[in-house]
Design a protein around this nucleic acid. Sequence first.
DNA 1: GATGAATGAGCCTTCATTCAT
DNA 2: GATGAATGAAGGCTCATTCAT
Lengths: 203, 203, 203, 203
Amino acid sequence: MKRSTRNAAKAKKEIIEKSAAVFNVHGYAGTKMQMLVDATGYQMGGIYRHFETKMDLAKASFRHNYEVLIKRNFELAEELDPKEKLFTIFKNYQKSALDPQIPGGCPLLNTAIEMDDTDEEFRALAHLFIKEVLSTIEQILEEGKSAGFFDPMVNAKQEAQYLFASIEGAIMLSRVTKDIKPFLAIFNRAITHVEEKIIKNTR
Amino acid sequence: MKRSTRNAAKAKKEIIEKSAAVFNVHGYAGTKMQMLVDATGYQMGGIYRHFETKMDLAKASFRHNYEVLIKRNFELAEELDPKEKLFTIFKNYQKSALDPQIPGGCPLLNTAIEMDDTDEEFRALAHLFIKEVLSTIEQILEEGKSAGFFDPMVNAKQEAQYLFASIEGAIMLSRVTKDIKPFLAIFNRAITHVEEKIIKNTR
Amino acid sequence: MKRSTRNAAKAKKEIIEKSAAVFNVHGYAGTKMQMLVDATGYQMGGIYRHFETKMDLAKASFRHNYEVLIKRNFELAEELDPKEKLFTIFKNYQKSALDPQIPGGCPLLNTAIEMDDTDEEFRALAHLFIKEVLSTIEQILEEGKSAGFFDPMVNAKQEAQYLFASIEGAIMLSRVTKDIKPFLAIFNRAITHVEEKIIKNTR
Amino acid sequence: MKRSTRNAAKAKKEIIEKSAAVFNVHGYAGTKMQMLVDATGYQMGGIYRHFETKMDLAKASFRHNYEVLIKRNFELAEELDPKEKLFTIFKNYQKSALDPQIPGGCPLLNTAIEMDDTDEEFRALAHLFIKEVLSTIEQILEEGKSAGFFDPMVNAKQEAQYLFASIEGAIMLSRVTKDIKPFLAIFNRAITHVEEKIIKNTR
DNA sequence: GATGAATGAGCCTTCATTCAT
DNA sequence: GATGAATGAAGGCTCATTCAT
């Protein structure tokens, strides 16, 4: 096959983008190099020119999936107020559930579960990304408290963990049942929770 | 080592029990037959006498882990009232998190995540077990509603899913961070939720 | 193919014996696992059950070749006097050159040359074996001096090195020319040297 | 790096010169094209423009090493008498051993050993070069006999082979022991041999 | 029932060579 | 003339499974 590009950076990017989906669907151990050859259109050696090992490519793919996830779910217009920000994130997660950009479920969840006891470096990477997500949510909650939108009694850190855990659990449920309904149900439950427990009731 | 005196059923049980932990820690693809040889004390042939394939043993191990989980977390004294039942389940989950009987995290979560896109039969099994857990919780909620303990407005099914999702998400967070604190925080958050939103406030 | 043996030690021995010739002919880098599969009659996995890596098998093969060489060339009847011993070694080397037990030339020479700059552990092994051979010759020379057969002025260590070097050089010449004559010529030259310079001339 | 200004012949020469050392140290099978890219400063395509295959470059490199060896060890002033010529060669070999121009040992020895059973064409080349060296020594011996310096009973051909074999064996010993001493010891032994057996004793 | 040696397909990786630029 | 990205056929090694004992 004739390759259209002879540009290293572009090729590397292309390989990552096409591999990322495969890893997220089949898991890192479950993904075979041959699958990546098929998915990327590159041959073995072409892939190995850009990545020392399969696991290096796996980590780059995970990072890519994370960035896509951040871009889709957490990239928020500056002018939004904290409440709007929080609901935008919710809306984005729902959109992602209904029309996934990354097949195979949430890469953070998948990677955390596969790597927690198998690959310390990989686990640490998942940990890092999850911390970033949690701290983004936490920050919005703190902003909301300062700005008088959210109940000042709210423990931002705990609430962020709670929201994130619920959503990841919801994703898992919908994936194992192959049914979007559990996700939507839990999701709405979580929104209600936000409305009732986090947002300051200006009655 | 002579084992000929043992009977088949006992050997099979022993192999399952000892394999179950290995599968839960390393995942099904990540577990190698040699690990099971080491863990069980049986040799290749000894294991294959009782299980046709590694995946058959994996499924039996998963079922075993599920039964252990049910016994530890969901076996409830008949005389408890629904509120007590719910809190007993919570307490059991907390106990399991602090002192795990099954190493490697929640087998329902682990299996759901690994198998959602890779092994349809295995996914269906995880689905089945999760449905059973959900329906147990749901039933308690319904009982509680009927008995006047719980708010009759509660949607039992959704609430069961919400509670389960939160807890599974919490387990994931604690495993990837290698820190029990996130689990406990989310956990307490969920208990508060039950107290405030599910239990009928008799004030 | 049905294998005749299910005995680990015997299988290991068989693999070594059949691999040893291949390694000595093709070199360690030049020998491919497939050659060993063909030569031994064992499959990949059968070989890897007994050796962790190709290089482990290579080292075992080298050791085996060394032992064969020792047995053939340096196993000397106790009752021989030092002069007879020395000439027996010569005769054995000549016999080996005319009718080689190990194809591919002298394994000490081959391994020393291939490994001097490539594999430190392997080089050290070759060094060890060569030291053993040199010390055997040296000892015979010392014995001969003590017993009055050899000139007491002979520096045993140097003379052993000189004899060994000449013979190894001779082997190399005969192999690269694919002609036994250079070996025999040098060989005879070395014998003359022994007769004239080492053996005490009782005139 | 722009190289387009260089001309073909110069580039080819440069590649050979820089590759020659690598081949001699790592062997022909053990040398990877990437090593040559690193050593030469040329890229794959740059090298392949001048050589059809790695083995072609290997042969050119071997020839180069041979020529360097000849120049350093066998280029003798015409006015020297045969005895002086012989000792100059000896001195040159000693100088080469103490301060090698070509790293990795004697290319004649290395190539003979690696190629004797693996590459017939390459073996023939080593054979040719070795024949040239032997015949140079032989000629000096013959000259010396004619001129009355050397014992007329000396068999020039055999004596040349004997000297060459000893020295090559000595090189091998010093390389495998990583110690110059064995070389020097054998070397001195060989010089003594020349003095006592080849040079006509005019007493 | 159980052992553990052996199978062989498949895995990850390497590397001589090609070729678009 | 030269670059360096890409090829693809091996290469070393793994591992679920089989089977002689």
